[in-house]
Amino acid sequence: MTATLPRADTATAAGAKRRRRRAPGWLAVVPLLAFTAIAFGLPALAMLDGAFSVKDPATGAGSYSTANLTDSLQGAYLTALLGSIKLSAVSAALGALLGLPLAQAVVTSRSRALREGVLTASGVLANFGGVPLAFAFVATLGNAGVLTQHLGLKDKGWDLYSFWGLVIVYLYFLIPLMVLTITPALEGLRVQWREAAQNNGATGVQYWLHVALPVLTPTLLGGFVLLFGSAFAAYATAAAMVGSSVPLITLQIADALSGNVLVGQENVALALSFDMVLVAGLVMAVYLPLQRRSARWLA
């Protein structure tokens, strides 16, 4: 004779069984959460603590205040912040405009080797920066660079160590990054959409203006935001090339931490870092909804 469990007991047993099955999944995430808390959480807390900490020069007593944040948004610090935003916006806009047609040429190419070669090279170049990139451009387009002397660019007013020179250097890794970002979206454009537009008498330009670009707009804006964030956070390339001749917030943070300009400005540097985090947070707040909207169209 077989005993039958009541319906409530059966539901309870089934719920407990499901919870036991889900437990290993949560446990697998614990190391990642712990690493994230240690690698990102502790530095973030230290940055916040330093950004809002001030010390009385007379007594040496410490307290919390917004004085560092106020100083970070004035004078040379504000100029550097606005300079970084301007440089990042211009570089990202040019990178998006130049990366889109290059990605479209790759997607429409019949050569699989060309497509794989360009995408592989883009993956490498998108992560190539810092001092090696600065040295490559200085040796090529610097004041004594090979192309500068061969083409007489210096006599024509060319200056690599300027705002526009830095923009050109940034495009070296921003355009490949845009190619990697926009290629999946271009591949998601359905052939049926183009055929339907042609059947209704639309030209290629009309198809792009009224069908393709509206669908790609969220991805294009998301790519622009991603490029902006990448350029905004770049440090080593600008430090090796222009030093303090182009005001940038990353260079100001390094100077404040090292005491090159004023001694005891470490907490102001942390406040500048907090300003960068706020800008990056705004960038991500724009980027994530655009990515979700684009994914719905191209899924």
Rank of each mutant, 00 (worst) to 15 (best):
T250L: 02
S91N: 03
S273H: 04
L48T: 04
G204H: 09
I249K: 00
N127V: 14
N68M: 02
G142V: 02
S65D: 06
F173G: 07
L272Y: 09
S245M: 01
R19W: 08
S245F: 00
Y170F: 13
A197G: 11
V268E: 02
T10N: 11
S53F: 00
A285K: 11
A92P: 04
R22P: 04
P247A: 10
T250V: 04
Q74W: 00
E195S: 14
G60K: 06
L69D: 01
L257Y: 05
K154M: 11
P176A: 11
F135W: 13
D159Y: 00
A16M: 15
G223K: 12
I168A: 11
G243C: 04
G229R: 06
A280G: 12
E195I: 13
A280D: 06
R7N: 14
I38V: 14
V205E: 08
F40W: 07
A13H: 13
A238C: 12
R20H: 10
W208L: 08
A271M: 04
A139L: 15
Q265L: 02
N199F: 03
A256M: 08
T108W: 04
S84Q: 00
T10V: 13
R190H: 05
E116I: 12
T181C: 05
A269S: 05
G123I: 14
E116P: 09
L48Y: 06
L102K: 05
K86H: 00
V261C: 01
R19E: 07
A76C: 00
P247F: 05
R292E: 10
G129H: 13
Q149T: 10
L45Y: 08
F232K: 11
L220Q: 06
L114A: 15
A93I: 00
A212N: 07
L78Y: 01
L27Q: 07
D255Q: 07
A197E: 06
V263N: 03
